[in-house]
Amino acid sequence: MLEIKNLHAKVDGDMILRGVDLEIPQGEVHAIMGPNGSGKSTLSYVLAGKDDYEITEGSIVWNGQDLSELEVDERVAAGFFLAMQYPVEIPGVGTMNFLRSAMNAVRKARGEDELNAAETMRIVREKAEALNIPLDMLKRPLNVGFSGGEKKRMEILQMSLLSPTLCVLDETDSGLDIDALRIVSDGVNAMRGPDKAILVITHYQRLLEYIVPDKVHVLSKGRIVRSGGKELALELEKSGYAEYGEDEAA
């Protein structure tokens, strides 16, 4: 169970999250929707533990463990994974190399045996194939020169390789065409399971046709202002975010 209680967070002195309350039981997929500037991306960075995102009040507890006490990499070891909206380029670092470093860092932190090059290669290839990632791409420096869609697929590949139990996807649908959206969604759906909690952050309802959520929440001005079932997404699609403060960027 993910329990976020009364979460307040500042970025550069501005209070962006103003008391977020959210519970996601294991086995469920929740979606957070909301207008631009409502604090959606801030929430994902706060959960990941990025520098300059300062929690001033409240707590984030995953399966009894207080994540806010942990470093970024320690949260990953504890099962957290954030698929980012803007994946970063790492020049000179081969993708396969990066994946192996990450997998082994996580395995080590979780007290598991590290994988050798051949084992990594086998696992990565298998998962890459499912995401329609050409092997060629694995030889290139990580994210360098990747298209928007390629970057997003790489995020999902990393998510599946690091075996997280708590996944957050930040605007994973942005910049994806329909085919890519389907592939990425299949990848996310494959992650669903009784021990997993998944939080999908999105501006548009479209993604939720492929990744069907158990619950939908609306974030506005740094708070969850409404929660409902998957039909809430459709309603928002029709009515827009006007009543939730669209264009009022925080």
């Binding site: 520098d51 990499d73 990953v76 990066f98 860092a105 990393q158």
Partner: peptide, 13 residues
Amino acid sequence: DDQMFYCMARGLN
């Protein structure tokens, strides 16, 4: 900082 954050968000210290 973004590169550092990205790598650490993938489990590297």
